[in-house]
């Protein structure tokens, strides 16, 4: 994928397909330790040891339309290519955690890209409108955190998917991501985010 945020979107889809009620996504960047870590954690159905061993191969998938599942192998390759790697832990009936680590300044490290857009795509998932999404993006000591539960309380009867809410929500997310980038990165480093 040309942006890391697209990997987040992709792994989040796995979590939703696994029946997650709570999806937690975090991005943690450290200029000091030159690391970028993306985590997707869910409370979906989880995987047994046998399945867990198979998910990294391109020929394993739970969908029935064809026998190819590229999301996890793609992310693992992207992380390994950048001096990092992919860790997956899972427990049947409990959930799964996927952690992708990258050397932040690595020349092959794709940009994060449009994270706000990826979050909106997750929030607009049709199958389950009651999904709780918690998100945290940290760059050194700066943090942007978002919890749909907080938003639900404020929206009263409306939901994030409602036409009138969507627009304002996606603007809010985009604005916060932009502000986070500007606050945390010195001018000279903006081009590498």
């Amino acid at each position: 994928m040309r942006e890391l945020s697209l990997h987040l979107l992709d792994i989040a889809e796995n979590a939703i397909a696994a029946g997650a009620r709570h999806l937690h996504i975090s991005i943690s960047e450290s200029l000091a330790t030159d690391s970028l870590v993306m985590t997707v954690q869910d409370d979906g159905c989880g995987m047994d040891a046998e399945t867990l061993a198979k998910v990294r191969t391109p020929f394993f998938t739970t969908r029935t339309t064809r026998d190819v599942g590229l999301g996890i192998p793609f992310l693992a390759a992207a992380a390994e290519r950048c001096g990092g790697g992919l860790e997956i832990s899972s427990e049947l009936g409990v959930g799964t955690t996927v952690v992708a680590r990258f050397q932040r300044s690595h020349i092959d490290r794709a940009p994060l890209g449009d994270v706000a857009g990826a979050l909106m795509a997750i929030l607009l998932r049709g199958d389950d409108e009651r999904l709780r999404l918690t998100y945290e993006h940290r760059i050194d000591e700066w943090v942007f955190a978002f919890d749909t539960r907080e938003l639900h309380d404020l929206l009263g009867g409306m939901s994030p998917g409602d036409a009138a809410v969507r627009r304002w929500l996606s603007e809010y997310l985009a604005r916060c991501e932009q502000e986070l980038k500007e606050q945390s990165c010195p001018r000279s480093d903006l081009s590498t985010t």
Binding site: V143, G156, L169, Y172
Partner: peptide, 11 residues
């Protein structure tokens, strides 16, 4: 970054 007030404005 981001605040409860901003979220209220969304509503």
């Amino acid at each position: 970054i981001g605040s409860l007030d901003d979220l209220k404005k969304i509503r």
